[in-house]
């Protein structure tokens, strides 16, 4: 077996297209969503009455402790498909779009549970004096969160949020479970057609490495810098 540059040359544009159109889109959109949801969970866990907060914590732990591929299958084939939303599509492209949306939701939910933990750490790192000063100034609870706690917690949690986003990025091939044409599934297809996988899988690995390693380094630097 030898390395075939022509396969690599043909595969690279297709894979990069899938990378930018699917892998990256899912990662970015789902990261933003999970960062928002995670914040909502973190505040909810602190502010909701005891019983409700326990229910939320349990739901989050269910989401966190079950595999994404299974969650994707459940979301696509047990929850969405019976509604007809997946089948009533006019084109393959639209069908795939909808699968991508399902994928984004599943990734956003799963990683929101981890990000909620990051925010919780950030919130707990804020000294009690900050809460006390807000009380002494009679700031309403809402305003205290908005103006005092969240900005500080955000800053403390940022590197950790970034790291979860990188972890999510490397999990995107799980989308193969519901046949979303992301980069690795494209690689698999090309490899199958040429009866040679070494080129495509090497390229896929390199793309992941090239995209994630510098971001990870950035987060490690950020971690040291972002301290009040």
């Amino acid at each position: 077996m030898h390395w075939d540059w022509s396969i690599a040359r043909d595969a690279l544009p297709v894979m990069l297209k899938a990378f930018f159109e699917v892998t990256l889109v899912v990662t970015v959109v789902a990261s933003i969503l999970s960062a928002l949801l995670g914040l909502i969970w973190a505040i909810g866990l602190r502010e909701m009455p005891g019983a409700l907060s326990k229910v939320l914590a349990f739901v989050l732990s269910l989401l966190r402790n079950t595999p994404i591929p299974l969650q994707l299958l459940i979301a696509a084939y047990a929850i969405v498909q019976p509604t007809g939303w997946l089948s009533h599509t006019s084109s393959l492209a639209q069908y795939q779009h909808r699968l991508i949306i399902i994928g984004i939701v599943v990734f956003a939910l799963q990683y929101s549970t981890y990000m909620a933990e990051s925010y919780r750490g950030g919130i707990e790192s804020i000294r009690s004096g900050q809460w006390e000063a807000a009380t002494a100034l009679s700031l309403p609870r809402r305003r205290t969160w908005q103006a005092v706690i969240v900005p500080q917690a955000m800053r403390a949690a940022l590197p950790s949020l970034g790291n979860w986003a990188i972890a999510m990025f490397k999990d995107t091939p799980y989308l193969i479970a519901i046949s979303v044409p992301e980069m690795v599934s494209q690689a698999q297809d090309i490899g199958g057609n040429n009866f040679s996988y070494i080129e495509v899988m090497t390229i896929a690995g390199l793309i992941f490495l090239v995209a994630s390693y510098p971001t990870a380094i950035l987060m490690r630097t950020l971690e040291k810098k972002l301290v009040y």
């Binding site: 490397k170 999990d171 995107t172 091939p173 799980y174 193969i176 690795v184 690689a187 698999q188 996988y197 899988m201 090497t202 896929a204 690995g205 390199l206 992941f208 490495l209 994630s212 390693y213 990870a216």
Partner: peptide, 12 residues
């Protein structure tokens, strides 16, 4: 191994 995604490693 951190940087190249579990699924890619598996397929390799």
């Amino acid at each position: 191994f951190r940087g190249t995604s579990l699924v890619v490693q598996l397929f390799f």
